[in-house]
Design a binder for these strands. Structure first.
Length: 128
RNA sequence: UGAGCAGGUUGUGUAAUAGCGCAGUUUUACUGUGAGGAAAGUCCGAGCAUCACAGGACAGGAUAGCUGCUAACAGCAGCCGGAGGCGACUCUAGGGCUAGUGCAACAGAAAGAAACCGCCCUGACUUUUUAGGGUAAGGAUGGAAAGGCGAGGUAAGAGCUCACCAGCAGUGGGGAAACCCAGUGGCUAUGUAAACCCUAUCCGAUGCAACACCGACAAAGAUGUAUUCGUUGGUCCGACGGUCUUGAAAGGUGGCAGAAAGCAAUAUGCUUUUGAGCACCAGCGGCGACGCGGUGCAAAGAUAGAUUAUUACAUUUAACAGAACUCGGCUUAUAGAUCUGGUCAUUUU
RNA sequence: UGGGGUGUCGCCAAGCGGUAAGGCAACGGACUCUGACUCCGUCAUUGCAAAGGUUCGAAUCCUUUCACCCCAG
């Protein structure tokens, strides 16, 4: 896919799950963690629990289409690893609806991340 | 018109915007192309690859009416036997318990060559009863009781005799065979082989995570020419090998999208050969599966895994559902639409 | 993708052609002033993942399907 880097190693997925912030919704769960590279890397998880191969493929496509639309609008301060986890109802959604949900989630998580960094920064200042 | 039977086809379409994989080229933009009838389950059969260009025996496994079709098969076609349906038609693991062994709980006298009750005869005692023998017609148990049923026959009975029916053996006729038909004979030991087993036929093992090649690192140790070691399966034989073992590890390409060769160069083309390739035919042969012949087609080939997302219209929401080395089948899932050919009943002519 | 295995009460499980053992838990009762421990009893009921078949008889044998688990990168 053009200009779209995907996460490939299991290590990187685990990093996103354990260190990253997450926001949940009945249709989509988003994990977000900053990486040290330029540009975002995304990963999509569709487990066997959500349905058959047709359902998994469909939800993967919908998420990818939604991300491509969302990427145009949001300005990321730096590179992030983003992992999207599909839910059973994801395949029934339209990608336009999913866009709005995803946009909210990512903006929320970016704020959280920024807030956390400021806190850390202050703490370090105070201790020193 | 109603009910019912068998079989086939299709498996959303169109437009706009944005986007992805692969191939090609005038190389970064265009052109072409891009999921299924089951791609599924992985239940069979093959190709292909490696191990000896795959050998023998045992073990193990598979199949099981007959004849054909097929590269092969547990598939398909036609037929035979059996079961069901008024019928169209459907279903059918359908070799052998008279080769041997095992099992048949409980009940019942007895589950394999049987006497509990009953019936009959004889003896004892003669009030009841009791001993021996004969008897498979009746009772009781059971899924199953020694061919079934009727008549003759008898002390009572019994294929003891006879008619019909079932089964077995051998005879004659028909058929390619399963098998069918006819008459003869002796008079018959139940069920179970999807129990062990026997018979016939077939099967070497491992699966593309097979396997081949490329690039790059470090080098060490052991054996000593055969009753050892290693190389492929459970075992043995046989065969082959001289070198074998080990450390660290991770990647790429091919296999893989019909194959091979040639020709041409504003392109993705053309030609030839080849293959269990696919589709079609008012062609030929065959009842048919199918074969022969002819014509046409053959461009999904990913590798964290492309083949789409959104909107509008049609008619509503399309059902089951996503290729991973490739084919032939089987099985299972499947909304709706549609076509063809039989059958039965009723009404009208 | 390929290979292998398992489904029996709420849980752990035995049984592998002839009435579905046992333990824990649960429920009822006894003991106790009450609770625990202990003792006694009940608990699969047309059923052994589901559907067909073989058999007199199937959890067990055969076929198909479903769910789950393990191994191989």
């Amino acid at each position: 896919m053009k200009n779209l880097v995907t996460i490939k190693l299991n290590k990187e997925y685990k990093r996103a799950y354990f260190q990253g912030k997450f926001k949940a919704h009945p249709v989509l769960v988003t994990y977000l963690v900053p990486n040290r590279q330029k540009g975002n890397k995304i990963g999509i998880t569709t487990s066997k629990k959500i349905g058959s191969a047709v359902v998994r493929n469909r939800s993967r496509r919908v998420i990818r289409a939604a991300y491509l639309a969302v990427r145009e609008r949001i300005v990321f301060p730096k590179g992030y690893d983003i992992v999207f986890v599909a839910r059973p109802d994801t395949a029934l959604m339209k990608s336009t609806k999913l866009e709005k949900i995803m946009e909210k989630q990512i903006l929320f998580l970016l704020q959280e991340n920024a807030a956390q960094r400021k806190k850390k920064f202050r703490k370090e200042k105070g201790s020193s």
